[in-house]
């Protein structure tokens, strides 16, 4: 590839600047903005996925010709991340969907009162 002989690694610099900007944006959204919590969570997770993409495509040479045009790396990462999404979402769904461990709401009230008596809250 022609870019291997370039003196100036422009791709890396763009990727680096982008990742710094996205990090600051995520930090601002989480700590400095007044957005609703749901929007913040969805927003910063989206920013994280974009940043992961920057690492994979701009730094990890995922799509270069020598690695078969990225066929294998792309397959591996795609399946890895699909499995990861299923594991995380599936665990959350089976373990905590519609259920809360907080003592102030949810669950059986009677049981909760008993628990409170025992623990002396």
């Amino acid at each position: 590839m022609a870019e291997h002989s370039k003196r100036f690694p422009i791709n890396h610099i763009i990727g680096f600047v982008l990742s710094i900007v996205l990090t600051l944006l995520a930090a601002w959204a989480a700590l400095g903005s007044d957005l609703p919590v749901k929007w913040i969570v969805a927003g910063i997770m989206t920013l994280a996925v974009i940043q992961a993409g920057i690492q994979l495509f701009m730094f990890m040479h995922m799509t270069e010709r020598e690695s078969g045009g990225g066929h294998v790396p792309w397959n591996m990462m795609f399946h890895g991340f699909v499995l990861a999404a299923i594991i995380v979402a599936g665990s959350l769904f089976t373990m905590s969907f519609g259920f809360t461990h907080d003592h102030d709401d949810g669950g059986s009230h009677q049981q909760e009162e008993q628990q409170e008596e025992h623990s002396g809250h």
Binding site: M77, H79, A85
Partner: peptide
């Protein structure tokens, strides 16, 4: 690396 993704997941 794909296995590592699953490990961390």
């Amino acid at each position: 690396l794909a296995a590592e993704v699953v490990l961390f997941s």
